[in-house]
């Protein structure tokens, strides 16, 4: 069983943290992962930076630009992670745009992920239809779970299709926005969370976008299995550096 699936069976609400690999400094990647695990985070999304991150707001854009300037590449990231499984046990997911993976070679990329012990991928600009037709077999053969996004505009029919193609969790984008654009939830989100909950999908949902503190984490996990924090964490690292990661995580989970 994949580490993501095992984690999802735990009887608790899960906290997943996104960070941009190679930011603020090129070699911060493994320290950030270790500190996040030690602080009690359940799952980590390692952001592979891209020059043109369409779905991201300014915070993650800027961290990606900086990471690339620092010299981050797919190869560098794989090298940094090559011994990560000697010390880290929680699920690790690589989140990135499709073009760098395409250039690396999708199969080679998947193979490398398996070697390292990456459990899954989130690729916002690889649509479920294309994945299903062209890449699912490859991902499956290397034991990787691919995670798809849904939004308040996604139709029930499409959600059910995504559910049928998924075998980990569904990334529930809280509102129509890029990352880091909005904070907090209104009635609209609550209604949406309830609507999805009522679909009784086979995959649990983890909410992302708009979660930045204990209050929003609790609100997001009322109806969902967990929540993902990205921009708020990257902001924290920008402002406070990487020495105070436990403080950030504690403030969410307190």
């Amino acid at each position: 069983m994949n580490r993501i699936q095992t984690k999802l069976e735990e009887d608790k609400k899960l906290l997943s943290i996104y960070f941009t690999a190679g930011y603020p400094n090129l070699d911060d990647t493994t320290k950030i992962i270790h500190d996040l695990e030690k602080s009690g985070v359940d799952m980590i999304e390692i952001g592979l930076p891209f020059s043109d991150p369409l779905a991201d707001g300014p915070t993650i854009q800027d961290s990606s630009t900086q990471a690339l300037k620092n010299g981050m590449t797919t190869e560098v990231l794989f090298n940094q992670l090559k011994n990560i499984r000697k010390s880290v046990n929680i699920p690790l997911i690589i989140m990135g745009y499709f073009n760098p993976m395409l250039q690396y070679g999708v199969e080679d990329f998947c193979k490398k992920c398996q070697e390292i012990g990456i459990d899954g991928l989130i690729i916002p600009d690889l649509p479920v239809d294309v994945y299903h037709e062209e890449y699912k077999a490859i991902f499956d053969s290397y034991g990787l779970i691919n995670v798809f996004l849904i939004t308040p505009q996604t139709s029930d029919e499409r959600i059910r299709f995504i559910d049928s193609v998924s075998d980990g969790f569904i990334y529930m984008v809280s509102s129509a926005s890029t990352t880091g654009a909005k904070s907090g939830f209104g009635n609209e989100q609550t209604e949406y969370f309830k609507r999805i909950d009522n679909l009784n999908l086979k995959n649990p949902q983890i909410v992302g976008f708009g979660i930045s503190n204990n209050r929003t984490f609790k609100a997001a996990t009322t109806y969902a299995k967990g929540a993902i924090i990205g921009s708020a964490f990257v902001k924290h690292v920008t402002n406070e550096g990487i020495e105070t990661i436990p403080n950030f995580v504690n403030s969410i989970l307190k």
Partner: peptide
């Protein structure tokens, strides 16, 4: 250019070996 993805379509584009758009 090499085959890759830019602004939502697969086409020829100028990019680094690592797939960053130049």
């Amino acid at each position: 250019g090499k085959e890759g993805i830019i602004h939502g379509c697969k086409t020829l584009l100028m990019q680094t070996d690592d797939g960053q758009i130049t």
